Amino acid sequence: MYETFYGLNGKPFSLSPDPNFYFASRGHQRVLSYLRYGIHQGEGFVVVTGEIGAGKTTLIKTLVNELSGDTDFVIGQIASTQLEASDLAESVALAFGVSNEGLSRSQIFNRLQGYLTQRRLEGKRALLIVDEAQNMPYSTLEELRMLTNHQVGDRQMLQACLVGQGELRARLQEKRMEQLRQRAVAFCHLGPMSQEETQGYIKHRLQRVGWKGRPELHQDALDSIYSETQGIPRRINTLADRIFLVAYLEEKEMVDRDLVTEVARELAEEQPSASDESEAALAGTQKMVSGQGEELMEQRLSAVEERMGSLEKLMDCRSLAKALIQSLQRT
């Protein structure tokens, strides 16, 4: 839509992580340097954390692109969605393309070990990248630590890179994670971009798709985008994409602060407010409580009915016994 109108050869603000749009902010470059260092150590864990939308996945994809041209590396990737410890070996095997159909867990583990041992004997290094690692149960993290303990000679067979949100960082500080934490050769956190970097990021992405200055971006618009997004790449992409769409629909040749404010307000209105979520939660609770109350009342009524039935039977028995006694007395 707006790409054709403004003479762009692609979508500049896609939400899908794309290393072709990697922007070397100070924070991103620092984390990438830590990753390179940690991975070339060939041992232990590399841990990358950052808030939602900070650009972690784009960063990792950029690194994978770099390493894909290095024949010394074999790379496997998994996304942790509450992965259980008992399923870890199977997931890791699949990540490296190791066939395990119809095999038991012990057979899968042995086949994976065989694969990793062979790669190490060939002089290759196996790197496992675990995305969304904050979702991993403690037992699975411990299982992963044990899996990376195996060596061929004095060389580690498998190195792991854990990528996750800030919760991962907090979890690794807990006492029960001390052994894993001690084996982290690089530990880095990806924060938001500065105001200057945010402006550079926007222009960088536009230039990647052939932007020639249409529409013109007024300085106050760039300042306003930073204020609205606080330098978080995903937020910037969401807001900027909508700004360009509205600018196209209104055939604007300049993006200014007013347009940014208008679009930011629209996006905010589309998101459920905290009060809406609270009301929805309260309504759900009330409905649940109401349902439980009705169920409890039915149970009580059933109990009363049973008791009434028992009483009626008892009264009938008493009446029968009384009549029998009177009959015996007459005789």
Rank of each mutant, 00 (worst) to 15 (best):
S99M: 13
N100E: 12
E101W: 07
E101N: 08
G102P: 12
L103G: 05
L103Y: 10
S104A: 11
S104Y: 09
N110E: 07
N110P: 01
N110M: 03
Q113G: 10
Y115H: 14
T117F: 12
R119W: 06
R119Q: 12
R120Y: 02
L121V: 03
E122P: 04
G123H: 00
G123T: 00
R125E: 14
R125V: 13
R125L: 10
A126C: 15
A126V: 10
L127D: 02
I129A: 07
I129N: 02
I129R: 08
I129E: 06
V130Q: 09
D131V: 00
E132I: 00
A133L: 04
A133W: 14
A133E: 04
M136A: 13
P137L: 04
Y138W: 05
Y138K: 09
Y138R: 04
S139H: 02
L141T: 03
L141K: 04
E142I: 01
E142F: 03
E143N: 02
L144Y: 03
L144N: 02
M146K: 09
M146R: 04
N149Y: 07
V152Q: 01
G153Y: 01
G153L: 01
G153P: 02
G153D: 04
R155L: 06
M157C: 11
L158T: 00
Q159F: 11
Q159R: 03
A160R: 06
C161Y: 01
C161R: 02
L162W: 04
L162F: 09
V163M: 05
V163H: 10
G164A: 02
Q165F: 08
Q165E: 01
E167W: 06
E167T: 02
L168P: 11
A170D: 02
R171I: 03
L172H: 02
Q173K: 12
K175M: 10
R176Q: 08
R176I: 12
R176N: 14
R176F: 11
M177K: 09
L180G: 13
R181V: 04
A184C: 12
A184F: 11
A184T: 12
V185P: 13
A186D: 13
F187Y: 15
F187P: 05
C188D: 15
G191K: 11
M193Q: 06
E197A: 07
T198Y: 11
Q199H: 12
Q199P: 01
Q199A: 14
Y201N: 14
Y201H: 15
I202A: 10
I202C: 09
I202P: 09
K203S: 08
K203V: 14
H204A: 11
R205N: 15
L206N: 12
Q207P: 05
Q207Y: 14
